[in-house]
């Protein structure tokens, strides 16, 4: 079955042209291509200010082969709800052809978890027929790696630096944005990773098919902010899933499903160690912090297992395509 999906994607027009200026190894463009290729309908993209926006649309050039709008940092949700309302208004009056168009917004964690949260919340509550995709790289990378509410506990950023007095890096846990999205009672919410591209495309497809607002939270490894090798991006994307730091699941019409069960749940240290942003933990030999991060991950993963109940997949690996 996965092959069908691949075959389908290979026939799709390229929504985002090469030649953009995103960093080597950036997952954002991978996510964008996989998400948009999951639908056959034409799409209109709204983009919050951030890496993706600034690297794909610099006048007088554009990397976008689909219609695209960037408005500001805080308002991708509201902007796209405006475009979608224009679509309904113009179609209603017969001023544009009766033709299905899909609406998708891309925002980083800054534009989604933080400054854009209110705008996104409003758009989800109003139930616009749109998909909102957060590419979550865990800090404000566009402006040089400042902490966000998506930055994980213990990560070094330029505004949560690991110093000689305050050695921990970011001292707070990350916000659970997916749970906040779910609290809006929208029909489709999912967490995914470009490391498991079939999972991502499956969820993007379902999100596009959903009538009403859908929210996808996608982890997006960032070689710059994470201090990792560009070639390791998808390895890290998979490690996040296999350590249960970033579990894959969906909630469709209120029904929760784990969509991936690791063959072997790897210790979180395997996820931390390759990343320069956690280097100080190992330099300081801060086992207490590693234990705390592991305990948080274990607790959250157990919650998901409890929630899945009898519906825990009985085989490991991607389960639903």
């Amino acid at each position: 079955m996965p092959n069908e999906q691949l075959t389908f994607a290979s026939k799709q027009a390229e929504p985002l042209a090469g030649g953009h200026s995103l960093c080597a190894g950036c997952a954002a463009s991978i996510i964008v291509r996989q998400v948009i290729m999951a639908t056959e309908d034409p799409v209109v993209v709204a983009n919050a200010t951030g890496c993706l926006e600034v690297c794909t649309g610099i006048y007088p050039t554009t990397s976008w082969n689909v219609s695209w709008i960037h408005n500001a940092f805080a308002n991708a949700g509201a902007t796209l709800s405006g475009v979608e309302s224009a679509y309904r208004a113009l179609r209603k009056r017969g001023e544009i052809p009766e033709r299905e168009i899909k609406f998708v917004a891309f925002g980083g964690d800054g534009g989604t978890y933080d400054i854009g949260l209110q705008s996104l919340s409003g758009a989800m509550e109003r139930g616009h027929d749109m998909v909102y995709v957060c590419y979550d790289n865990g800090a404000y990378m566009n402006t040089g790696v400042q902490r966000s509410s998506a930055t994980p506990l213990g990560a070094h950023t330029t505004t949560s630096p690991a110093g000689t007095l305050m050695t921990i890096g970011k001292s707070e846990i990350r916000k659970d944005m997916t749970a906040i999205a779910e609290a809006h009672g929208i029909p489709y919410i999912a967490q995914s990773s470009p490391g498991y591209y079939m999972d991502l495309m499956y969820k993007a497809k379902r999100a596009f098919q959903t009538k009403g607002a859908a929210f996808l939270n996608v982890m997006s490894p960032c070689p710059l902010g994470w201090s990792t090798e560009p070639a390791d991006t998808l390895v890290l994307a998979r490690l996040a899933v296999d350590t249960c730091v970033w579990p894959l699941f969906e909630i469709a019409e209120g029904e929760f499903s784990l969509t991936y069960l690791p063959l072997e749940k790897k210790p979180v240290i395997e996820w931390l160690q390759p990343q320069g942003r956690f280097r100080h933990i190992f330099k300081n030999n801060d086992e207490g912090l590693i234990d705390r991060i592991q305990a948080d991950v274990d607790r959250d993963w157990q919650k998901l297992l409890d929630r899945a109940g009898d519906a825990i997949p009985d085989i490991a690996g991607p389960v639903r395509f």
């Binding site: 308002n75 902007t79 405006g82 979608e84 113009l90 209110q118 509550e125």
Partner: peptide
């Protein structure tokens, strides 16, 4: 919408949508 910031943001989106 839920704020004036979003009102003008949606206005820009809708106007860009024609």
């Amino acid at each position: 919408v839920e704020s004036e910031h979003s009102a003008m943001s949606a206005a820009v989106g809708a106007a860009a949508g024609g």
